[in-house]
Amino acid sequence: MHVLLFEDDLDLGQAIVNALRQEGLSVLWHRTAEGAQGLETTGIDAVLLDLGLPRVDGMDLLRGWRRAGWLVPVMVISARAELPQRLAGLDEGADDYLPKPFAMAELISRLRALHRRQARQASERWRIGTLEIAPRDNRVWVDGEPVELSGREFQLLEALARSPDAVVSKSALGRRLQPLGDPLEGSVIEVHMSNLRRKIGAHRIRTLRGVGYQLIA
């Protein structure tokens, strides 16, 4: 699970980062709203948003994201704890609102609940020719037979399947597979792509040299 954190308080931000990472979640922390500029949302599972950011109110960020059609779950974490303030946050598009101070265990539990809710809304299966993908369960079938993929192999296949017949560049795949921090290196993608081809059939993935990869029926 990949989480974006917007929190200006140094001690609280570091405590949240440590708690999430101990639970096996990856997290990228921004202390100002500048981190939202040019934000690539693909591959992000949830956002933790403090409303009291320097120079830009977090509520304005939330409004802008929703007006732009950004559907990633957002949990507000804020000292603005009065009922009208919480209702305003939810009305503006927050999926959850956790007043400060809070217990880390509750924060993590709510994050996991958001992730489960998002997964339930996803399609049960995608069908591309005789290839079937269950994104919620990380399962794949070829010609009706189950195929075992590694985590990276499934991420690659899912990224291609989200845009069937479209060409996805290697750099875009690198960002999708590792949305927080540096993108996955091209040489690593090539290794996983080779293994994926071997498992689902090399003819299903077309390589356009210098352009990217395309999943075909």
Results as ranks from 00 to 15, higher is better:
R206F: 04
L5N: 02
A36P: 11
M104H: 08
L39S: 09
L83C: 07
V72A: 15
M1C: 08
E153N: 05
A217K: 11
A36H: 10
R152E: 09
F154Y: 14
Y213A: 00
G210E: 03
S150M: 08
K199L: 13
R127L: 01
P99T: 13
G52E: 12
V47H: 10
V27M: 13
M1D: 05
D182P: 11
V211G: 04
K100F: 10
L157T: 00
D11L: 14
V3L: 06
I128T: 00
G35V: 07
D91V: 13
A217I: 06
L90E: 08
L131T: 00
L180D: 10
M104R: 01
D95T: 05
L10S: 14
D8E: 15
G186V: 09
S123E: 04
M193E: 04
G38M: 13
R116I: 02
R117W: 10
Q85M: 13
L107P: 02
G43P: 04
G181I: 10
L208N: 04
Q22A: 14
L149E: 02
P135F: 00
E148D: 10
G24C: 11
A88L: 14
T207V: 09
V47C: 13
S150T: 15
V142G: 01
R31M: 14
S163K: 13
K199D: 03
G43H: 06
E158I: 01
R120A: 02
Q85R: 14
L107M: 09
